[in-house]
C-alpha cells in the first residue's frame, strides 16, 4: 500500500499528535538534567519542576512593593494593545478592501498604493512611530495597525473581486444599488475571510507587539521577557513564552469557532 494511502485511526491520530509535545518535554528534561548535574546552580535550562514553581508564583503572588500580580498586569496591557491594533486593522482593511474591490475608480486610485505600502517593513518604521506618537500606547497600537493592515486589505479586495461576476450582475437585475450590493452581497461573503485574515495576522501582530514592548515600555509581556533576560531568569521567560503561546492559541481557537457558528452557509456544501 502506498504511504499516501495509509491513514491513522482515531486513537493513533491522537497519540501521534501528542508525540511531538511529549518528545520535546522529554528532550528538555534530559538536557536540563545533564546541565544541572554538572552545575546545580545552572540558570540556562531550569528543571521543569522549577518552571512549574515559578509559574505558580508568577500567577498568584503579588509584587513585593506594590502587591500587584505583574503577570496579569502585563497580560492585560499586552492584550489591550494587541486586540486594539488588530481590531483597528480589521475594520480599516474591511472598509478599504471593499471599496477597492467594488469600485473601479477606487481600484485605480488605491490598489497600487496599498501594494507598495504592504512592502514597507513595519519594524523599520518603529523609530518614526516613537518619535511621532511618543513612547506610550499609541505607537505600539499603530505599529500593529501599519504592520497588518496592508496585506489584509489586499487580500480582502481580491476576495471581493473573486465573487463570481454573475452574482453581481444578478443583484443588479434585482434592482440593487451599489450600496446594497456592498452590504448585502459582498460584505456577508467576505466576513468569513476577514476572520481568517485576522487569524493569520495575529502571528505578525504578536511579533510587532513584543518588538515594540521590548524597545520601549514599562509594562507588557514582551517588556517583562526582555527585562528578566538581564538576570538570565530562564524560568520566568519560559513561563511567559508558554503563556503567550497559550493566549495565541486560545484567540485563534475562539475565532475559528466564531467563524463556524456565524457562517453556517460556508459549510452547507461540505
Amino acid at each position: 500500500m502506498r504511504l499516501i494511502n495509509r491513514i491513522p485511526g482515531r486513537p493513533a491520530a491522537v497519540l501521534l499528535a501528542a508525540l511531538p509535545f511529549i518528545a520535546a518535554l522529554i528532550l528538555y528534561s534530559i538536557a536540563s538534567d545533564i546541565r544541572l548535574e554538572a552545575n546545580p546552580a545552572d540558570k540556562l535550562l531550569p528543571a521543569p519542576s522549577t518552571i512549574g514553581d515559578t509559574a505558580v508564583r508568577l500567577f498568584t503572588q503579588g509584587d513585593r512593593r506594590t502587591g500587584e500580580i505583574l503577570l496579569w498586569k502585563d497580560t492585560f496591557a499586552s492584550l489591550a494593545r494587541l486586540l486594539g491594533g488588530v481590531g483597528i486593522a480589521a475594520a480599516l482593511s474591511l472598509i478599504i478592501g471593499m471599496i477597492i474591490g467594488l469600485l473601479p475608480y477606487a481600484r485605480s486610485l488605491l490598489s497600487g498604493f496599498v501594494a507598495v505600502l504592504s512592502m514597507v517593513p513595519p519594524l523599520a518604521l518603529l523609530p518614526i512611530l516613537f518619535i511621532v506618537f511618543g513612547l506610550g500606547e499609541v505607537s505600539k497600537v499603530v505599529l500593529i495597525v501599519i504592520g497588518v493592515t496592508p496585506f489584509m486589505t489586499r487580500d480582502l479586495a481580491q476576495r471581493v473581486l473573486d465573487i463570481p461576476h454573475e452574482q453581481i450582475v444578478k443583484a443588479q437585475t434585482l434592482g440593487a444599488s451599489s450600496w446594497v450590493i456592498a452590504t448585502r452581497v459582498a460584505l456577508p461573503q467576505i466576513l468569513p475571510r476577514l476572520i481568517t485574515n485576522v487569524r493569520l495576522s495575529l502571528g505578525s501582530a504578536w511579533l510587532f507587539l513584543i518588538a515594540a514592548e521590548a524597545v520601549a515600555s514599562n509594562v507588557g509581556l514582551g517588556y517583562r521577557i526582555f527585562l528578566v533576560r538581564r538576570y538570565l531568569a530562564m524560568d520566568v521567560i519560559l513561563t511567559y513564552v508558554m503563556w503567550i503561546t497559550l493566549l495565541a492559541f486560545l484567540i485563534d481557537w475562539s475565532l475559528k469557532t466564531l467563524s463556524r457558528r456565524a457562517f453556517p452557509w460556508m459549510e452547507a456544501g461540505l
Binding site: 463570481p164 454573475e166 444578478k170 437585475t173 452581497v185 452547507a268 456544501g269
Partner: peptide, 12 residues
C-alpha cells in the same frame, strides 16, 4: 431578469 448556468443565487 437573468439566470446563468452557475452562480445565479446568493450562497450566503
Amino acid at each position: 431578469g437573468v439566470v446563468f448556468q452557475r452562480y445565479s443565487v446568493f450562497p450566503h
